[in-house]
Design a protein around this nucleic acid. Structure first.
Length: 881
RNA sequence: GGGAGAUUAGCUCAGCUGGUUCAGAGCAUCUGCCUUACAAGCAGAGGGUCACUGGUUCGAACCCAGUAUCUCCCA
């Protein structure tokens, strides 16, 4: 092993990752052990690793590695989703570069290019996860468009359609004019945008001088107006009732209708009604039986129904309309206005509400049991504050628009007869058989007359099957199927780690699908991570350029350093303010461990030597067990950053700063065999405890010859996780006092500018039951004390301090500064007097003595006794000065 | 507009059922150290009106009400 002064991650990471792969440590097959399963939230196949993935996958890897070491059959299933809109956009761009337009090629040709693209770029993110150390079972890697998984999607569609849970209908959908597809409500991101509010004059028909003013943010849609609406209670507009107005520029006549829906305070109190381009207007239109005029093409340009500005893009049209209105003297004024606008999650295009024929999945029925699982606690959301949000959504869930006007994805298995009727079936042949049963079907119907629906289903319609389909896709759509061995062994999975943003998108729907096809929940715990922000709280994003390159971070700080850095700043469910300095802290920690190892490795053993470190060894043993219990408790509650911090302190403070210093032999002196052996054992245990957080460093050290010969499968990654054992709390308490004594002596040295090299004599006046003799060698070593004497009375002229009930005296070579000493003691006396006063106040309060629990009163009495004793000691010291 | 959550040291966060010397941790800061594992380090120190105002209680960071600010979700 190299003995370089610092840990060098580059020399170990690839080496051990390949080794783990080669020895198949990540691989899982069902056996008699208890399974522990995580399915990865499949990243978008077009994606590259960002900080959110780093956090998310670090957490999953910590959980899976720990489970593996706890002896469970750990299985982490990786994969990607096909991300229809995003991928299709990439492919369209790629084709464009090659001079090919999507509209000029067939669906089959397009898909060929798309697969080509996917094979070439689709695996990048998974490769990046390897750098992080992710111990996924790569043999199980799945893609949502793999043949069997796609088939599962189709079967699911058919099944739900048969159950009446999927239907087709005309609805107002969120239209993405850039992706030229519908998107679901969850894929629309609302943002506040600075807009203008245009005040437009509509002339009253038959009265060339009269007009009303309407305020709108979307003047380009006036050509689609089919009414103007006023509130019937609005005093200002009583005279307009029953009249008509003319749409400006095109002078089409539209009625004035009345509805209390109109807010009198907003704008002018007059609302233009545009049923084709606004959800609320649509509903108003249905209520008042208004026609629908759709003036927009799928790409967001104006069509011939607009009559003017045909072919112009909607936002350009908006500017031009404003100008035309102004020229026609029909634009009264323009005001700045802020409002919420929806944007497509994938393309960032402003969403256009659009009426269209789409497929929907009914949600309310499926939401019911999915809500129950969470409310009953069968599925735990961590942190549980998300239960409320979840419930609110589930109780107000709307039907899910699942069709997308794209080619990349699973094509909807609906087949249209020439007369417009349709059947849902897996293949053309089956569809033909189905179709023949339709009474009104043409008698001479041939299979080739059927035309399959052009659309594909939403990517999430694949993803919601993920926890099932990665194991056995064949049960999706077939709830009666038993499922294969994998599914029966691994499902339900244990933990799901994901971002709260997709609680509804995905988590809720996985629960629905799990219930539908397995009658069972898909996972038991959902750990919701926070959003990674920069140190000033901004969400990390490409456009802001405030996100560090994860792979760059790994190169700078090492994978272990970055993993530790991510976890140090990530309380569950709270956003984390990421800063590179956390990774630096992680790297420093790795280095600390490395150097502790170098120390132990450098020791020479002399078998002749007596075992002199019994107290230190026993203390550390207890301390380790105490910390382990604490760490396990943190893990049980998914408090990973606290589990890490407890580990960090155990290693750095207890093991390195105290234990190793206690047992460390003097320079170039050998160590006794027993201490050496037990220290190695302690070190091994630390490595196993650290492994889930820092897999590379620990595996590297684990294989050092210092620990003896290991066979090729004896690796840290599968070493048994330590088990907590008994804690000697008396010993822990004693050593706490000893540590305090040592600190006090160091402090005296420090404040008096005495070199740590100069040994000082220590006198102890023992008033407690602590057997200080047992700890003499520790005190000698760590406080650099020349001699220790147990004394019966105070030592005059010495610096003194109190720990617990015992008094300590350090005689200094020079004269002590009486004045400073007096001041220090007086200060402490003042504090104690105040403290005693407050304790006495409590104890003399009758109501306290009556109401408080016995043990609390007892405690107050102890506090009083301790304080009084201390005051007495200090007063004596003061007198002795 | 409706809902949820947050506010504790310069920063990031713990603080469980109200009760110990309970106001904590890590980082950062300051002071002193190149003490043969580690300066990516060692030893020590300082730092807080627990957002604000009331209330309940023998006792409040913790419970209740209101105010302010921030974040998220939904419309």
């Amino acid at each position: 092993m190299s003995i370089s002064k610092t840990y060098n991650p580059k020399e170990t990471e690839d080496k051990w990752y390949s080794y783990w792969l080669e020895k198949k440590f990540f691989k899982s097959v069902p056996d008699e052990r208890e399974p522990y399963t995580i399915v990865i939230p499949p990243p978008n196949v077009t994606g590259v690793l960002h900080m959110g993935h780093m956090l998310n996958n670090t957490i999953q890897d910590v959980l899976i590695r720990r489970a593996r070491m706890l002896g469970k059959n750990a299985c982490w299933v990786p994969g990607t989703d096909h991300a229809s809109i995003a991928t299709e956009a990439k492919v369209v761009a790629m084709l464009k570069e090659r001079g090919i337009e999507k509209k000029d090629i067939s669906r089959q040709e397009f898909l060929k290019y798309a697969w080509e693209w996917k094979e070439k770029y689709g695996g990048i993110i998974l490769k990046q996860l390897e750098k992080l150390g992710a111990s996924c079972d790569w043999d199980r890697t799945r893609f949502t468009m793999d043949e069997p998984l796609s088939e599962a999607v189709i079967d699911t569609f058919i099944h739900l359609h048969k159950k009446g849970l999927i239907y087709r209908g005309i609805r107002m959908v969120n239209w993405d004019p850039k992706g030229k597809t519908a998107v679901s409500d969850e894929e629309v991101i609302r943002r506040e945008v600075n807009q203008k509010l245009y005040y437009i004059r509509y002339k009253v028909a038959g009265d060339s001088n009269a007009y009303i003013v309407i305020a709108t943010t979307r003047p380009e849609t006036i050509m689609a107006d089919t009414a103007v609406c006023i509130n019937p209670n609005d005093e200002r507009y009583q005279h307009l009732k029953g009249k008509k107005v003319l749409v400006p520029l095109i002078n089409r006549e539209i009625p004035i209708i009345e509805d209390e829906y109109v807010e009198m305070e907003f704008g002018t109190g007059c609302l233009k009604v545009t049923p084709a381009h606004d959800l609320n207007d649509y509903e108003l239109g249905v209520k008042h039986n208004l026609p629908v005029i759709d003036i927009l093409n799928d790409d967001g340009t104006l069509n011939e129904k607009a009559e003017i500005l045909i072919g112009e893009e909607r936002f350009i049209a908006r500017k031009k309309i404003a100008k035309l209105l102004e020229e026609a003297a029909q634009l009264e004024k323009v005001e700045d206005y802020k409002s919420q606008v929806g944007f497509s999650e994938r393309t960032d295009a402003a969403i256009e509400p659009k009426l269209s024929m789409q497929w929907f999945c009914k949600m309310d029925e499926m939401a019911q049991p999915a809500l129950e699982y969470v409310l009953k606690g069968d599925i735990k959301l961590i942190p549980d504050k998300f239960i409320n949000t979840y419930r609110h959504w589930m109780e107000n869930v709307k039907d899910w628009c699942i069709s997308r006007q794209l080619w990349w994805g699973q094509q909807i298995p609906a087949w249209y007869l020439p007369n417009g009727q349709y059947v849902v079936a897996k293949t053309r042949e089956e569809a033909f058989l189905e179709a023949q049963r339709i009474k009104s079907a043409p008698a001479d119907l041939k299979p080739e007359d059927l035309k399959q629906d052009e659309d594909v289903v939403d990517t999430w319609f694949s993803s919601w099957l993920w926890p099932i389909s990665v194991f056995d896709p064949s049960v999706c759509g077939n709830p009666e199927a038993k499922g294969n061995a994998d599914l029966n062994y691994y499902y339900p999975t244990n933990d799901l780690v994901t971002a709260p943003e997709i609680l509804f998108f995905w988590v809720a729907r996985m629960i629905m699908a799990g219930h539908e096809f397995r009658g069972e929940l898909p996972f038991r715990n959902v750990y919701l991570t926070g959003i990674v922000r920069d140190k000033i709280g901004r969400k990390m994003s490409k456009s802001l350029g405030n996100s560090p390159d994860p792979i760059g971070l790994i190169e700078t700080y090492g994978a272990d350093g970055v993993r530790v850095g991510m976890l140090l700043c990530s309380p569950a469910g709270n956003d984390l303010m990421f800063d590179e300095s956390y990774c630096e802290q992680g790297r420093n920690f790795a280095n600390k461990i490395w150097n502790a190892f170098r120390l132990v490795k450098g020791w020479e053993v002399d078998p002749q030597l007596d075992f002199v470190n019994e107290q230190a060894v026993n203390w550390y043993e207890s301390r380790f067990n105490e910390a382990l219990a604490e760490i396990e408790n943190h893990f049980d509650q998914y408090r990973l950053s606290e589990a890490l911090m407890a580990t960090y302190k155990l290693v750095w403070d207890d093991f390195c700063a105290w234990y190793l210093e206690m047992v460390k032999p003097a320079y170039q002196q050998p160590i006794d065999k027993q201490t050496f052996d037990v220290t190695l054992e302690f070190f091994e245990r630390i490595l196993t405890l650290l492994h889930p957080f820092m897999p590379f460093l620990t595996e590297e050290l684990w294989h050092d010859e210092l620990f003896g010969q290991r066979d090729e499968l004896q690796c840290c990654i599968v070493a048994p996780y330590p088990k907590s054992a008994e804690v000697n709390s008396l010993l822990l308490r004693d050593v706490d006092s000893i540590k305090q004594v040592i600190s006090e002596i160091r402090n005296i040295r420090n404040s008096k500018q005495i070199s740590p090299k100069e040994p000082l004599p220590l006198g102890i006046k023992v008033n407690s039951e602590i057997s200080f003799k047992n700890y003499f060698n520790i005190i000698y070593k760590l406080a650099n004390v020349s001699e220790i004497s147990l004394v019966e009375s105070k030592i005059d002229g010495a610096a003194s301090f109190i720990v617990g009930r015992d008094e300590f005296f350090v005689s200094l070579a020079g004269n002590i500064d009486t004045e400073a000493e007096r001041e220090r003691i007086t200060k402490e006396l003042d504090y104690l007097a105040g403290f005693l006063k407050s304790v006495n106040a409590k104890l003399s309060n009758e109501r306290f003595v009556q109401n408080a629990k016995a043990e609390i009163i007892e405690n107050e009495r102890n506090k009083k006794a301790d304080a009084e004793a201390k005051i007495a000691m200090l007063q004596q010291s003061l007198g002795a000065l």
